[in-house]
């Protein structure tokens, strides 16, 4: 390595005999810097050792943090060595060259495309464009195979009249599972874990709800059920401040008032969480009286069309 640095600069050789020979760069003295040489050498040796150290750690079973530190030394040693080399040991010659116009010279046919032989057939060009448009339409067909037509999917959930309320494991929910001020995520029997059927069953206690009279009967003895899917962007409305009877969505902080029909009281949501009509049976379990009467989850353009 030391011998090499005292050599004259290497030159590009011409590529083939008879090829146009370009003048080579004028020679420059290669910087002498023993200190920098030692630093570069040390960096490369450190990288070498760290690389084999990493191999050893890996073979002994591996440890993420030790591996990372050794990898850092290995990569950093190579990188730092090369950079110091380039800065201290290379003849860093500042060179100036002329900038040339980017636009191509016009040839004798004029213009880059220069094809009157093609452009004269205006009608055929239009027909060809039309043909490609037809092909485009034909190729668009597979795109519609990517998903089903939205149809009524967005308007309905698995809830049906008579379905029992079950928990996420599919076990039937009993009123004793929800103490006063408590809540539980419930699903229609047969669809535990359903994404659009997820519903919050909240025990607010009798006499506190201020919903419309017909909806009061949907909430027997203060057990009220609202869709858990946020009407803003569809996150599960999972946060419940029991003492204030407010539900909060953790994604965008839409807040809903449980006592007043889950109307939004803050955040970007506009529609209330739909209320599920339920009935409390004599054995302490619940059944649904039907599906939600409005679509659950985030809005879409024809949400108020009734499907």
């Amino acid at each position: 390595m030391n011998d090499r640095t005292t050599e004259r600069p290497e030159r590009m050789r011409r590529s083939a005999p008879g090829d146009r020979q370009e003048p080579d760069p004028p020679p420059l003295a290669i910087p002498e810097n023993p200190m920098a040489e030692r630093i570069v050498g040390a960096a490369f040796v450190a990288a070498l050792l760290a690389g084999f150290g990493l191999l050893g750690v890996y073979l002994l079973g591996g440890q993420t943090q030790v591996e990372a530190i050794l990898l850092t030394i290995c990569l950093g040693g190579i990188g730092a060595g090369i950079i110091v080399w380039s800065q201290a040991l290379l003849p860093n010659r500042i060179v100036s060259e002329t900038r040339h116009p980017l636009r191509s010279e016009p040839d004798e046919e004029g213009g880059v495309l220069a094809a009157p032989a093609i452009t004269r057939r205006t009608m055929l060009i239009r027909l060809m464009a039309a043909a490609f448009a037809g092909l485009g339409a034909a190729l668009a067909i597979p795109v519609f195979s990517l998903g089903p037509a939205p149809g009524r999917d967005l308007f309905v959930t698995p809830w049906r009249s008579g379905l029992r309320l079950v928990d996420d494991q599919g076990a039937v929910v009993h009123r004793d599972q929800i103490p006063m001020g408590g809540l539980l995520t419930v699903f229609p029997d047969g669809s535990p874990g359903s994404a659009d059927g997820q519903t919050l069953l909240i025990n607010v206690g009798a006499g506190l709800l201020q919903v419309a009279p017909d909806r009061l009967s949907w909430a027997p003895e203060g057990f009220v059920a609202y869709s858990k899917v946020c009407t803003h962007a569809g996150c599960p409305v999972g946060l419940y401040r029991a003492s204030l009877h407010s539900l909060i969505c953790p994604c965008h902080q839409s807040t809903f008032d449980v006592l007043r029909g889950a109307v939004p009281t803050g955040g970007p949501a506009v529609r209330p969480l739909p209320q599920l009509p339920i009935k409390l049976q004599s054995d302490g379990t619940f059944v649904a009286l039907g599906d939600f009467t409005e679509p659950v989850g985030p809005s879409f353009w024809n949400i108020h069309s009734g499907g």
């Binding site: 599972q177 103490p179 006063m180 001020g181 408590g182 809540l183 401040r241 029991a242 003492s243």
Partner: peptide, 10 residues
Amino acid sequence: VGPGPMPAFA
């Protein structure tokens, strides 16, 4: 108990 704003669980 469901202390403060926290709901109670059974």
